[in-house]
C-alpha cells in the first residue's frame, strides 16, 4: 500500500467522522442527504460481501467493518434518532435515487468480471459509489447555503477520490499489475462529479465567503 492510497482511505474516514461529529454535536442532520447516506450503506454492504471469504489484510478487514458500521449508524440516526430525524430536509432531498440503483444494477449485470453473485454485486457497488454523491450535491444546490461541516464532509470525500486516482498513477509506474478497469473508469467518473463542487469551494475559500452553490 502506498502513501496516496493510505491518505485516500484516511480522508474517506475523516469525511465520515466529520459527518458523525456534526450529527452528534449539533443533533442535527440539516444539509445532509439521507438518500446519499443510504446509497453509501448499500455500496459498502454489497461490496464487502467478501468480508469473510477473501482475506487481504487486517487493515482492509477493519476498514471494511468500520465503513459498513458507520454508514449504517448514520442512516439509523437520520431515520430513527428522535432529535436528529426532525432536522432532515426531506423536501430538499428529492433526487430519484431508486432509478439510479436500478440502472447501476442493470449495468452490473451486463458489465462485470465474472457472472457470479459476488462479482455482480461488487461491480454494482462500484457503479453505485460513482453516483452516490449526486443526491447530496442536488440537496446542497437546492438549499443554497452550505454549512461548514457539510462543506468539509463533501470536500474530504472528493479528496479521497482524487487521492485514489493519484494512487493508481503511482501504482502504474511502480507495479506492473494492480487493479480492475471497472474500478478505474468508475473512479474517474466519480471524481469528475466533484469538480464543480471543488471549484465553488475554492472560490468561497479564496474570497473568504460562505460556500454557496449556484442553483
Amino acid at each position: 500500500m502506498n502513501i496516496f492510497r493510505f491518505a485516500g482511505d484516511m480522508t474517506h474516514l475523516i469525511s465520515i467522522l466529520i459527518l458523525l461529529l456534526k450529527i452528534y454535536a449539533t443533533k442535527s442532520c440539516a444539509g445532509i442527504s439521507l438518500k446519499t447516506q443510504e446509497l453509501y450503506a448499500l455500496v459498502f454492504l454489497t461490496r464487502y460481501l467478501d468480508l469473510f471469504t477473501d482475506y487481504v489484510s487486517l487493515y482492509n478487514t477493519v476498514m471494511k467493518i468500520v465503513f459498513i458500521a458507520s454508514s449504517l449508524a448514520i442512516v439509523w440516526c437520520m431515520r430513527r434518532h428522535p432529535l436528529v430525524r426532525r432536522s432532515y430536509d426531506k423536501d430538499l432531498d428529492t433526487f430519484r435515487h431508486q432509478y439510479v440503483v436500478l440502472a447501476c444494477f442493470v449495468l452490473a449485470l451486463l458489465l462485470n468480471e465474472k457472472f457470479t453473485i459476488q462479482e455482480v454485486f461488487w461491480a454494482f457497488s462500484i457503479y453505485l459509489e460513482a453516483v452516490a454523491i449526486l443526491p447530496q450535491l442536488v440537496l446542497l444546490q437546492r438549499s443554497g447555503n452550505v454549512d461548514n461541516l457539510t462543506g468539509q464532509y463533501v470536500l474530504f470525500l472528493g479528496a479521497y477520490r482524487g487521492l485514489y486516482i493519484i494512487n493508481w498513477i503511482y501504482r502504474y509506474f511502480t507495479e506492473d499489475h494492480f487493479t480492475r478497469w471497472i474500478a478505474c473508469v468508475s473512479g474517474l467518473v466519480q471524481t469528475g462529479l466533484y469538480a464543480d463542487f471543488f471549484y465553488y469551494y475554492y472560490l468561497s475559500w479564496k474570497t473568504n465567503t460562505k460556500l454557496k452553490l449556484p442553483a
Binding site: R5, S57, M63, H177, F178
Partner: peptide, 10 residues
C-alpha cells in the same frame, strides 16, 4: 497484465 483483477483496495 495491468488489470489483473486484484481486489486489494477499498
Amino acid at each position: 497484465k495491468l488489470f489483473d483483477g486484484t481486489k486489494d483496495e477499498l
